[in-house]
């Protein structure tokens, strides 16, 4: 019985850490505008460019984890970022994107940590 409890606790904690996005770079929810697909690719798919404004600075990030329903040019979205799980490769007729992140918890209304 004691072993079973230990196993369950370990398992629950494991799932907890997995679900807590320990790779997250920034716990701050980021607001951005979907720009367009760029000729960069990895195991997740082709990359999208997202325009972000933080601290008065406009920048852009590339991501391959933008859910399909948000792949609409000009759509405003809210999301969190973490280090990408896969490296990005691009064709060499473009300047590659400055920053690549995996984005998660994407929403078009408000930020959510769920």
């Amino acid at each position: 019985m004691k072993n079973l409890i230990t196993f369950l606790l370990t398992t629950i904690c494991g799932f907890c850490f997995y679900g807590c996005d320990s790779d997250a770079l920034d716990q701050e929810c980021i607001k951005g505008v979907v720009l367009y697909e760029i000729p960069c690719n990895n195991a997740n798919g082709l990359a999208y460019l997202i325009k972000v404004e933080r601290g008065g600075i406009t920048d852009s990030i590339a991501t391959t984890t933008l859910p399909s329903i948000y792949k609409v040019e000009g759509q405003e979205i809210f999301f969190f970022i973490r280090e990408p799980k896969h490296e990005l490769f691009c064709n060499t007729s473009i300047i590659p994107p400055k920053k690549e992140y995996d984005i998660y918890n994407v929403s078009n209304n408000a930020c959510s940590n769920e």
């Binding site: 490296e87 064709n91 994107p97």
Partner: peptide, 12 residues
């Protein structure tokens, strides 16, 4: 091959 990885430290 007119393609390549974006990161500086990529080595596969």
């Amino acid at each position: 091959n007119s393609w390549g990885f974006t990161g500086q430290n990529v080595q596969i």
